[in-house]
């Protein structure tokens, strides 16, 4: 037993950490766009780190619990409600059979993607080690597509009750802010930063770029001042990492995201640092981005600090020693 979908919303997909280890065969990694929100959802529910959640885009679905389970909303606050009562994000709730979760049909003010985690995860057959939906490949998740009316999703190992339910929330001061309509995104230059003129690099790091409507789970296409290349914009195709910023010959940057192609033949000016990827994933059309270059050492230090802060927060509700062993063993 699990949930029954009354309305799928424009794009609600099943996602986990992605299809890892198959990019060498041409598969997109996929997975949640906002990895921190995925991690938070699973941490708050004592789930496995890679349990599957629902990723909601802009406008949420409506569904009914067919059996009781605990659940949580993370990521952007899209003002979801449980039986008409507005829910807080980053806080675990217990739902009973027949309870209805609904999202308003208007656009949110802040952030593009919300995540719905269920205790024990969702029961779908993993494909190559992942339950993530890869839309362009029509694979993974629920038949490789977004949710629609009448779909049923089963819980894998539901836990209608969780210890310390009241404590399962993030402290108010916990940094989950995704910023306003103008954000700073930190990047590490490379691997092909020397393909651009010094003026081109200066423009990239000093001028604002806007998110265009041609953005999706594959990439965020930006508009702004043209970044000139020294020579050709094409390279011999090489590997692409999450957050790579490629600049094709027209000179407008594209940030490659969860459903990115594994390889590509355009010059990559920089790569978004891991702790700022959620910020990119939460951008809406028209938002303004300014890039700032940082060092790899600094970026990795921020990532370790973020991890420590998450673990510290989780101690407030986490009591099972096995959980800590697992968490520490994974490092």
């Amino acid at each position: 037993m699990g949930i029954c979908v009354q309305r799928g919303g424009p794009l609600t997909t099943v996602q986990d950490k992605g299809r890892l280890g198959y990019q060498n065969l041409g598969f997109s990694a996929s997975g949640a766009m906002d990895r921190r929100a995925l991690r938070l959802a699973n941490l708050l529910l004592d789930n496995e780190e890679n349990d599957a959640v629902l990723e909601v885009t802009m406008v949420g679905p409506k569904f009914t619990f067919e059996s009781p389970n605990c659940f949580v909303l993370t990521g952007a606050d899209l003002k979801a409600s449980l039986n008409g009562q507005v829910l807080e994000t980053n806080r675990v709730y217990a739902a009973g059979a027949g309870d209805v979760v609904d999202f308003p049909q208007s656009f949110p003010s802040r952030g593009a993607r919300a995540y719905i985690g269920f205790a024990g995860g969702l029961d779908l057959p993993p494909l190559m080690g992942s339950r993530s939906t890869y839309l362009k490949g029509k694979m993974g998740g629920l038949e490789g597509r977004g949710l629609k009316t009448g779909d049923r999703l089963e819980f894998l190992a539901p836990r209608p009750q969780l210890p310390n339910l009241e404590k399962r929330r993030l402290p108010e001061d916990f940094e989950t802010v995704y910023g306003g309509r103008q954000v700073k995104i930190r990047v590490i230059l490379g691997p092909q930063e020397d393909s651009f003129t010094p003026e081109g690099l200066k423009l990239f790091l000093n001028q604002p770029y806007r998110v265009t409507p041609n953005s999706d789970r594959m990439g965020s296409r930006l508009d702004g001042p043209v970044i000139p290349h020294k020579g050709r914009a094409d390279i011999i195709s090489d590997g692409i990492a999450f957050g790579a910023i490629q600049v094709p010959s027209e000179g407008k940057p594209i940030i490659l995201l969860a459903d990115r192609q594994s390889t590509g033949g355009y010059t990559k000016i920089a790569n978004v640092i891991t702790v700022d990827l959620p910020k990119v994933a939460q951008r809406m059309v028209g938002d303004e981005i300014r890039f700032e270059a940082v060092s790899v050492e600094q970026a990795q230090q921020w990532l370790r600090q973020e991890e420590e802060a998450l673990e510290k927060a989780a101690r407030a509700w986490q009591t099972r020693p096995s959980f800590w062993k697992r968490l520490l063993g994974a490092r």
Partner: peptide, 23 residues
Amino acid sequence: VTELIPTFRSLMVQYDPRQLGYE
């Protein structure tokens, strides 16, 4: 090291910086 992507003239090595620093 989490993932390897061999291409024409380079190998992409993806890794988890929480386990393995760049240096």
